[in-house]
Design a protein around this nucleic acid. Structure first.
Lengths: 103, 103
DNA sequence: ACTTCGCATCAGCCAATGGTGATGCGATAA
DNA sequence: TTATCGCATCACCATTGGCTGATGCGAAGT
């Protein structure tokens, strides 16, 4: 119920560059070279960020020759989205604003 | 369309203690004293984190005598949740996995 | 008026994290 | 085979960011 909201996923997506990567990968599967073109970031930098995304399960890789394609795993975002929606729903439930504990 | 996913909200919620605070406030409106009891964190620490949440629009305050009640603003979480769901939806759309740009 | 309490702000410390150049390795091209 | 390319890893630096104690202030309570 109070899903662990997989903290790794939030932290992974909380970085601005990583969020850009996620947005790009939402549209098409890309490899590092493309991401360098799109973001202007350096190869090493991207590699580090992609590792974070991979370890958080936000992204998966598909080696293809000497290239490595990165693909978004929608489940991870859906899970996070659902958890946040659940929190918001709880907050909207009637007495969340009324049940005021005395100080 | 590609909503800005309000980066401030993600970063605000990406911290483990702040996420706990959000989860607590989703159930009931609380003031700092209660949050100290619930989380074990110190007053100064909580005050800093609550400032981040407030400036990100995740939380709003209601001063009440010498106490300050904190209340969750569900809209902020709903907005973030929706943006993430939209990203996931885009990724699931047919050709996101097929449209593979050549290297 | 004096004390106590709730809370915000500030300055400092330290750990975590993003960015970079150097390096290595496997895969392709010449 | 040799050179080139894509990418991961490593070591290092600079910055960010969380935590704390000290301080100040407004609002009760006595």
């Amino acid at each position: 119920m109070l899903m662990s909201v997989d903290a790794d996923v939030i932290k992974a997506v909380a970085d601005p560059l990583r969020l850009r990567i996620v947005a790009l990968l939402a549209r098409e599967t890309l490899c590092t070279t493309h991401l360098m073109d799109e973001t202007g970031a350096r190869q090493t930098n991207l590699s580090n960020h992609l590792r974070v995304l991979r370890e958080a399960g936000v992204v998966e890789t598909e080696p293809c020759g000497r290239y490595t394609y990165y693909r978004l795993r929608p489940e991870s975002l859906e899970s996070l989205s659902g958890a946040l929606a659940e929190l918001a729903r709880t907050a909207r439930s009637a007495d969340a604003h009324e049940n005021r504990r005395p100080c």
